[in-house]
Design a protein around this nucleic acid. Structure first.
Length: 577
RNA sequence: CGGGGCGUAGCGCAGCCUGGUAGCGCGCCUGCUUUGGGAGCAGGAUGUCGGAGGUUCAAAUCCUCUCGCCCCGACCA
């Protein structure tokens, strides 16, 4: 591509509404423009990146035995009513009426549609398994879209749905998808981690997220430093720490005056006790009914674990008024004793230990509370958020390390959650009618582009992995004079013939402008041709990853340069860099 | 949905408090010079001051309503 004819509107200054680096660089680099909140145009460079990601995904999905289809974006409400999600999905589902007044939505995900496809024509175990996928724009009316392509309302997603005749078959399919995902992200040149995850409102019994590691990631993940256990903190199990063997003092709890001391920090400072000697009691509404969650003072409640323990579909922290009416104590002084509703106590609370808890009335706490004696009616469950340093639940010696990640893929083992209610059934070899066993598998295509930048950038701009770069090489003739331009043109033609994608900066700009734009756009290799080095028969190769400085350049003989550069590009693609 | 902030030229911003001819930088156009890290000089074009209503002789500026956008939180494949 000749830069002089390309639509690449770069900006010197970042637009005021862009915050995260990937958003800023994509807008500044002319990859992306905003149309409305969370809705964007992909300009030529941005679309090239997206198509590269799509192509890698297609190749690996096909290789894993999946078949590509395309489902509609506009979906009739009937299908969503059948699965019950028309009511449950909430405001995130963009609904509209057609001219006859019939209800439709724009698909945020396609379980209903694909189940409808399969149940119509698949009747026998002999016709199974199948794995159907599509790459399509999805729409989710997020409460707060943010960060450019990282969390848009309209975004491109690859979603796949598998149908098997048995649990074992479905598990094998799940594993095949897991393996395909690992290959996809490796080929994209991303540093990632597969982690165990919560299934959210998609549902199902087993789930892994693929997280691109980046400081700016929204998800917190923990990984064992000794075995291969890794999980989203939402999901991460926590192994109960070894009991200290402390014996609790005899006698009843003793009231302690703690005027004005509400928070764990205030109470520990006031009483001179460590946070580990305190229990905090949080009141939640589980599907509208109060429950209490009790964790050690230094721990945090994991609301997903609480939701599962309470058997609820939704838990929300109770407001001040609710807390006061349900417990008789203001926030800060609620304790686990004498509550009229279910109490869940975290496993790291020692059953035989002695703790300070809220007294259940203002300006007071209770000391010497022994759970085994005083909280006999409570249920002990894993309730807290995992953190760095926690003991691994799967091996005896490991400890958790913490990472930040950007979720770019998610695989779910669904079982019969959709197939049973929607009667997606088949006749098995034994003559029995059975629901198909399903899995679903998503990849955020446009999010990958953003995640790649979050993980690979510097002060100058984007640093694309070779596989995702809109062009492999930025070729910069630095002067207009005959020789320089002629050599650049010849090299451009040669490289193009070798299948290398080149952006030839043939604009009438000063060298500094070309260098700055090349850094911003982020092609992995930059080749500069200037009269100085050309006089010696050399051109200048800079690997973008080495930083923005003009040092660290290699001089290559013009003779044979095309072949050498093409070899570099192919090597980087093969290595997943 | 709660809290905060912002809408003035393509982009970044000032002007608003204290009402009186709409400005700066970058970009854009023309010319000359320049040409290895976002050039210099000279000249030039570009605005329904987000929208509606109100107050006033007069509104970017004050008042009311409204729309849009951003950030934090809540929420979330």
């Amino acid at each position: 591509m000749r830069y002089s004819r390309a639509f690449i509107p770069t900006l010197r200054e970042a637009p005021a509404d862009a915050e995260v680096v990937s958003h800023v660089y994509m807008v500044r680099g002319g990859y992306l423009r905003k149309v409305a909140a969370g809705i964007y145009d992909l300009l030529p460079l941005g679309w090239r990146v997206v198509r590269k990601i799509e192509e890698i995904v297609r190749q690996e999905m096909d290789r894993a035995g999946a078949q590509e289809i395309l489902m509609p974006a506009a979906i009739p409400a009937e299908l969503w009513q059948e699965s019950g999600r028309w009511q449950k999905y909430g405001a995130e589902l963009l609904r509209f009426k057609d001219r006859k007044g019939a209800d439709f939505c724009i698909g945020p995900t396609h379980e209903e549609v694909v189940v409808d496809i399969v149940r119509r024509d698949i009747k026998s175990y002999r016709q199974l398994p199948h794995n159907l996928y599509q790459i399509q724009a999805k729409f989710r009316d997020e409460p707060r879209p943010r960060a450019g392509l990282m969390r848009g309302r309209e975004f491109i997603m690859k979603d796949a749905y598998s149908f098997d005749a048995s649990d074992d078959g479905a598990k094998a399919t799940y594993q095949a998808m897991y393996d395909a995902y690992a290959r996809i992200f490796k080929r994209c040149g991303l540093e990632f981690r597969a982690v165990e995850a919560d299934t959210g409102n998609i549902g199902g019994s087993m789930s892994h997220e693929f997280q691109v590691l980046a400081e700016t990631g929204e998800d917190a993940i923990v990984a064992c430093d000794s075995c291969n256990y890794a999980a989203n903190v939402e999901q991460a199990e926590v192994r109960r720490a070894a009991a200290s063997g402390a014996t609790a003092p005899a006698g009843a709890p003793e009231e302690l005056a703690t005027p004005g001391k509400r928070s764990i920090a205030e109470v520990t400072a006031f009483l001179g006790k460590p946070a580990t000697a305190l229990l905090k009691t949080l009141v939640y509404l589980a599907d509208g009914k109060p429950v209490a969650a009790v964790v050690r003072g230094d721990h945090e409640v994991n609301e997903i674990k609480l939701r599962k323990a309470a058997g609820a579909t939704e838990v929300v922290l109770a407001g001040e008024k609710t807390v006061a009416t349900e417990t008789g104590a203001p926030v800060g002084y609620v304790g686990p004793l004498g509550l009229k509703f279910p109490v869940f106590v975290d496993l790291d609370v020692e059953w035989g230990g002695s703790y300070v808890v809220g007294a259940g009335k203002v300006d007071a706490h209770l000391g010497g509370v022994v759970p085994a004696r005083d909280l006999a009616g409570a249920r002990q469950v894993d309730l807290r958020v995992a953190a760095a340093g926690d003991p691994c639940p799967r091996c005896s010696s490991g400890k958790f390390q913490a990472f930040k990640g950007i979720e770019v893929g998610h695989v779910f083992f669904l079982g019969t959650r959709y197939s049973a209610p929607m009667r997606c059934e088949f006749l098995d070899a034994d003559g029995q009618t059975k629901p198909m066993v399903m899995g679903c598998y998503g990849i955020g295509i446009t999010r990958i582009a953003a995640a790649a930048i979050e993980q690979n950038h510097d002060e100058g701009g984007i640093v694309w992995p070779m596989a995702l770069a809109p062009y492999h090489i930025a070729l910069l003739p630095l002067q207009k004079d005959g020789d320089v331009a002629a050599v650049a043109e010849a090299l451009y033609a040669e490289l193009t013939a070798l299948g290398v994608e080149v952006l030839l900066d043939d604009r009438d700009e000063r060298p500094g402008v070309k260098f700055k734009d090349a850094e911003l756009l982020g092609m992995p290799l930059r080749v500069a041709i200037g009269k100085k080095t050309l006089a010696e028969g050399k051109l200048e190769l800079k690997v973008r990853k080495g930083g923005a400085a003009s040092k660290d350049v290699e001089l290559l003989p013009v003779e044979g340069a095309a072949a050498a550069l093409a070899a570099r590009v192919k090597a980087a693609l093969a290595a997943g860099q």
